[in-house]
Design a protein around this nucleic acid. Structure first.
Lengths: 240, 240
DNA sequence: CATTTTTGTTAAGGTTAGGTTAAACGCTAA
DNA sequence: TTAGCGTTTAACCTAACCTTAACAAAAATG
């Protein structure tokens, strides 16, 4: 599992507060880079990719708004959160104009910040997440597309699979060359484990075997009393 | 420029405040639908597509959180903004858990709300932009212009499409070669998923198939129980 | 080896989803 | 009011899907 932590650029001139906040966020599984002022913040921003930027508004040399504008020029998508000294409407409006996604008034509750981060990151990531699940498999000379429910042998016309056929073959493929327990399929696909569902499953195994028959590389073996095993022999692997 | 106004669902039980806020937002070029309670809010949500939902937290019958959860079930992307009576951390956290994008404490400054809306819509649009601009498609030897609602085969006279035909074909084209779930079309185009709308959709599928019949490169396949798939075979591709 | 249990396979039956055509409905504009 | 259009509903049919039954074969059991 590649559970990379989200990367945060934190720009805050107060060293004490900066470090405390950084530690807090680090403790909550973020990778935090702390910059002490706008200049440094921009330098660090250019050198890496961040998932979120948290900018203090009041800073020497370069204030948060200016920094936000520069960041927006480079990247118009990174979420930006402002930390403002107090509820100054002026600042808030200015912040949004500079391309902010949200703002927080100091002093703020750390849990609220976490929630905001979560909400913002969730929105962003929901688009990239797309193909995280396993829906396609190579089974010998077959290709199984489990989302579109078809099984294709080499370049021939795809065979349409029924929902049950599809899910069963997918379960077998997930356990390729390993035991796929009867019980697992019955509870996952049939949602009930009794004599009849079990017989029904056997019928589907027979159907799948009929499909797979044309390929010597793939076959479904029974492990008596335990379940089934989809064996896939390594075919003519080309060192491409 | 098709500058359609953004559509807001505003759910607020205080009639005075609700109307004032609605007018204010309307004045600022939003299309606002006002619901007086959670029940009504959900009904209205189901009947149309909104760009943002603004929900009061304290409401009779169904509070804002419950409503938010129901809305999230139907659509996990619409931005939701909560209006909370005062800074109650509890409420804020609860709100984010229910899938909120932001919250505002009453009394709030209307300009701040505008800014938040702008920020949120901007954030969203950067993601949705991709699809929203897609109004023209090449489907085999056909050309679909979804904005002008016609379908042309090669250089022949364009076929005029009815609104439903058009939207359905567009949805299929957006998911070209991939599954276009029944439910998606029903909720997006028919705004209701029941036996009759489903049958109606099938009628439209038949109509579209009749149009596409003249081209071997394009056809609509059914994935039993799931939806439809517009398969477009690559035609005479030129190696440019 | 006889018996029981599990699995293999095919076919029949019933249910639901989808394909298609035509009629009915409702709206709008002449 | 009617004519035209887009849409829904009805009706009928076919295809898809799943379960169950029936019988055969294999594996386990004693």
């Amino acid at each position: 599992m590649e559970t990379e932590n989200k990367k945060i650029l934190l720009v805050e001139d107060d060293p004490n507060f900066g470090i405390v906040l950084k530690d807090y966020l680090t403790m909550n599984d973020f990778d935090v880079v702390l910059a002490k002022n706008g200049m440094e913040g921009f330098e660090k921003f250019k050198k890496d990719n961040y998932d979120v930027c948290i900018l203090d508004v009041m800073m020497p040399y370069k204030d948060g708004f200016t920094l936000a504008r520069e960041i927006r020029e480079k990247n118009e998508n990174v979420p930006i959160i402002f930390l403002t000294a107090k509820t100054m409407k002026e600042d808030v409006l200015k912040g949004y104009k500079a391309g902010a996604d949200d703002y927080l008034n100091k002093p703020f509750d750390s849990e609220v910040l976490l929630m905001k981060l979560k909400a913002i990151l969730q929105r962003k990531s929901s688009n990239t997440l797309a193909d995280s699940k396993q829906f396609e498999f190579e089974i010998g000379n077959f290709h199984l597309n489990s989302k579109l429910r078809f099984l294709r042998y080499k370049d021939e016309e795809p065979i349409k699979l029924s929902p049950k056929e599809n899910e069963l073959l997918r379960l077998l493929a997930l356990h390729e060359n390993d035991l796929m327990p009867r019980e697992l399929a019955l509870t996952k696909i049939w949602r009930d484990d009794n004599y009849f569902t079990s017989r029904s499953m056997d019928v589907y195994i027979a159907k799948l075997r009929k499909y797979l028959k044309r390929d010597d590389l793939a076959e479904i073996l029974n492990i008596h009393g335990e379940g089934f095993r989809l064996v896939v022999k390594a075919g003519n692997e080309q060192a491409s």
